[in-house]
Amino acid sequence: MLFIATGAVGAVGVGSVAWPFIHQMNPDASTIAAGAAIDVDLSAIPEGSSVTVKWRGKPIFVRHRTPKEIKEAGDVTLAQLPDPQADAQRVKKPEWLVVIGVCTHLGCIPLGNQGEYDGWFCPCHGSAYDTSGRIRKGPAPKNLEVPNYAFASDTKLTIG
């Protein structure tokens, strides 16, 4: 009885001391605060070009898509996609594509306007993304992630 009680209290004690030592490695308060929302001015991005902004240490691609790119993205049937998602589910306004520019394979930054699908190509292990940022070919398992964002006005985008 005494052994069990001692053992139980000991296990709880070890567990509750271990947690702070594990949790201290998670993002600290200042890192989380620095990850707050940012604004992007859209009037400076002409059609057919994109800007890369830094948010939470990662690049965010904001692309002003051309009608051709929008059509390409819409014409794909879901059966052709490794991670099926319709273009409409990935954008709020068809002309603006906003994605986190981090390859879902191992985290390199894909290069814009490249690869077989007119979207992005990752030089690290050869993943190709389409004009909706969806994975089409290569080792990456998922589409480029879409961050939380909102259009504060016609020319102002808030990310985060």
Binding site: I22, M25, N26, P27, D28, T31, G35, R56, G57, K58, V102, L106, G107
Partner: peptide, 23 residues
């Protein structure tokens, strides 16, 4: 991050942030 379910949390924990950075 390839580990199913907990992969993302593990990488965040390893980084101490949202990407490789000062921590």
């Amino acid at each position: 991050s390839a580990i199913p379910l907990v992969g993302e949390s593990i990488t965040t924990w390893l980084w101490g942030g949202y990407s490789v950075d000062n921590p």
